[in-house]
Amino acid sequence: MSRPNLQTPLKQVRGLGSARGGTHHFIVQRITAIALVPLSLWLVWLLLSLVHLDYAGARALLATPCHAVLMAAFVLAAFWHAQLGLQVVIEDYVHTPGLEIALQIAVKFLCVLGALACTLAIVRIALGS
């Protein structure tokens, strides 16, 4: 098999292959950003509503299906967007090989854990359990 290798010599030496996936990162970052524009405005309104509510009132407000769904949407979009952004920040500023990989994995794990913890809390609040 002698397919022509179109990679630059530098890429072959580094053994990383071509980037290719960059466009997907760019597009998902924009889509989550667009989703977060109305969702974060709603979140600010909700948090302002919580200021004068006690525990029962706050829980009842968030338990309404509309707010529970919007909160879940915000949480998923926000953690996804945060992961994409932090990934680029680490790529740009952390160049120690082992540390960079460790941070990239840690950020992904933490974002997933945060999203799951919030989602479970929202479900518990919405279902009154």
């Binding site: 706050a58 968030l62 945060a82 945060g114 919030c118 479970l120 809390a121 929202i122 609040i125």
Partner: peptide, 12 residues
Amino acid sequence: SVLLVCLLTSLA
């Protein structure tokens, strides 16, 4: 975002 996690989990 840790604050949001704390808010929601405490509310639950």
